[in-house]
């Protein structure tokens, strides 16, 4: 947890500094009435102070209080692979279209996680995607056409 806390505080500190730097370019206050930059600067300063206090607290933390965070075990790697899969899906979605991309995505995930027969997997995926497509596209009137293959 120590390392993670330092990373969190570092990331947030950079985040806060970027906000402050951008906010300083905004139009200034007018006759005592705060401009668009004032509130972001206040909040970013709060974030900066909290990030620093988290770092200091972590430095003075007892070793016994430290808990390990699992970021590398096989179970977690599966999460990363899933995330990458979702990003690929997100990129392909507007290029290929909702129905086809989503069906393929579902088939691959269900097959990977569940080790069911191909036929069963494909059947589940197709029925679910068509149900969603019909529900949102026809009943709720959301235009579901993302790309060429529907």
């Amino acid at each position: 947890m120590r390392k993670a806390n330092f990373i969190v505080s570092g990331v947030f500190a950079v985040f806060a500094i970027v906000i402050i730097a951008i906010s300083l370019t905004f139009p200034p206050s007018n006759h005592g009435v705060p401009g668009p930059g004032m509130f972001p600067i206040i909040i970013a300063s709060l974030i900066l102070v909290s990030a620093l206090s988290l770092a200091i607290k972590t430095l003075t933390m007892n070793k016994e209080e430290d808990t390990a965070i699992d970021l590398k075990s096989k179970n977690i790697l599966n999460v990363y692979v899933t995330m990458v899969g979702m990003i690929v899906y997100f990129v392909l979605l507007p290029l290929i279209g909702f129905v086809v991309t989503t069906t393929v995505m579902l088939i691959l995930y269900i097959k990977w996680y569940g080790k069911r027969s191909w036929l069963k997997t494909i059947l589940i995926a197709v029925i679910f995607v068509l149900a969603i497509f019909f529900l949102f596209g026809s009943v709720l009137n959301v235009p579901m056409r993302f790309g060429i293959l529907i």
Partner: peptide, 29 residues
Amino acid sequence: SLAKGVLCGGLGISLSFIGIDGITGFPRF
């Protein structure tokens, strides 16, 4: 942790800054 609570809350507030400022019409972030 109070610090982490503030960081999370701050993140949420910061997201709300994005877009046209409601009072001056100035585009932020």
